[in-house]
């Protein structure tokens, strides 16, 4: 079968469209895959969680000591302190965070969650 000029042009357009959309998807995915939640107790990173839209939901108890607990939920690129045994509950009221530079801070338990770019300056 021989392609006419017009067919070639259409194919070319389709090809470009395909490439572009793949590139865009890849780019977007890359963008959201770049985020990481760092859970820090007294300034030390104790856990890292990759955040992305299609991540698997993670929920767990974070034990500071025998009486101090958090319940943390991470899903769909967001993370939050669902529950805390701390007195002021500011960490819980902060709600969910999802952007690089955002943080959840619990002063009484000296615990923080930060969102950073993966492989950023911190190591």
């Amino acid at each position: 079968m021989k392609l006419k000029k017009g067919d070639k042009a259409i194919l070319l357009v389709i090809l470009i469209f395909f490439l572009l959309s793949t590139a865009l998807t890849f780019y977007n995915k890359n963008g959201s895959d770049n985020k990481e939640a760092l859970i820090e107790v007294e300034g030390k990173v104790i856990k890292k969680i990759k955040l992305s839209q299609d991540m698997e939901k993670e929920e767990f108890h974070l034990k500071i000591d025998d009486t101090k607990f958090f319940y943390v939920i991470a899903e769909e690129g967001k993370i939050k302190m669902e529950q805390s045994t701390c007195p002021n509950q500011i960490c819980v009221k902060t709600g969910e965070i999802s952007e690089v530079g955002e943080s959840i801070i619990c002063l009484p338990y000296k615990t923080a969650i930060y969102i950073e770019e993966s492989g950023g300056g911190k190591n």
Partner: peptide, 15 residues
């Protein structure tokens, strides 16, 4: 790039 360090001092958080 950015590099961050956080510690708890003076009854508050220091970043």
């Amino acid at each position: 790039r950015r590099a961050r360090k956080t510690e708890f001092f003076m009854g508050t958080v220091v970043e």
